[in-house]
Simulated assay, not measured.
Amino acid sequence: MPDQLQLQYKNIKGNVKGPTWQFSGLLLLICLFGLIIYTTGRDKLNTKLYLSEPEIGDIYKYRVYNGNYSTMKLVSITQDSLFLSLNDYEISKRSRIYKIDKPENYPDTYFGYSKHEISLMEKDGTILEINRD
């Protein structure tokens, strides 16, 4: 490129800036990551709260020993124990637990766990999350 043309190119390039809307995608991406971080933190705090103050109807999402995922529904509470109805179904992906969380999937059979056992299950990662409606 001739020197005179290179000089014009550098002058034009130095004076022209890209439009600010070009960065809107980056801003949206940052907002999305911020929202994900916020909701994850809130879910962890809610799980701790629901673990310390259980209520009938709480849904416990947990990892089954074989690597699948399922849910338990809290049906009764005593001073030191929780009685849960285990979901009849398991699913291979954690993100799809909602598909098996239906009232008809919980039998009338209940299993009792001490509050200490439930706390240990949450600490070791067996219980992933507790949801309350």
Rank of each mutant, 00 (worst) to 15 (best):
L74P: 08
Y89Q: 14
K102V: 07
I97F: 02
Y62V: 10
S95K: 15
K48E: 03
R94Q: 14
Y50P: 15
S70T: 15
T78M: 04
K73M: 08
L86V: 13
L84V: 12
L74M: 11
K73Y: 05
L49W: 00
V64F: 12
L84F: 12
N68F: 14
S70Y: 10
G57R: 06
L84H: 08
G67E: 10
Y89F: 14
L84P: 14
I91G: 14
L84E: 04
Y89I: 03
V64Q: 09
K73E: 14
Q79G: 10
R96W: 09
R96S: 14
S92M: 15
L51D: 00
Y98C: 00
K102M: 09
D80H: 06
Y62P: 04
T47K: 15
V64R: 09
Q79I: 11
I56D: 06
N46F: 07
D58R: 01
D80S: 15
I56M: 01
D88V: 10
G67H: 15
E55H: 11
L74I: 13
N87V: 02
Y89A: 07
K61M: 00
D88H: 02
Y98L: 02
T71F: 02
L45C: 00
S85N: 08
Y98D: 01
Y50N: 12
K61P: 00
K44F: 02
G67L: 07
Y60G: 03
I100H: 03
Y60C: 01
D88C: 04
E53A: 02
I56G: 06
Y98A: 00
E53S: 02
D101S: 03
G57I: 11
S95V: 11
N68I: 02
G57A: 04
Q79M: 08
I91A: 07
K93S: 14
I91M: 09
E55K: 14
K99G: 04
F83M: 11
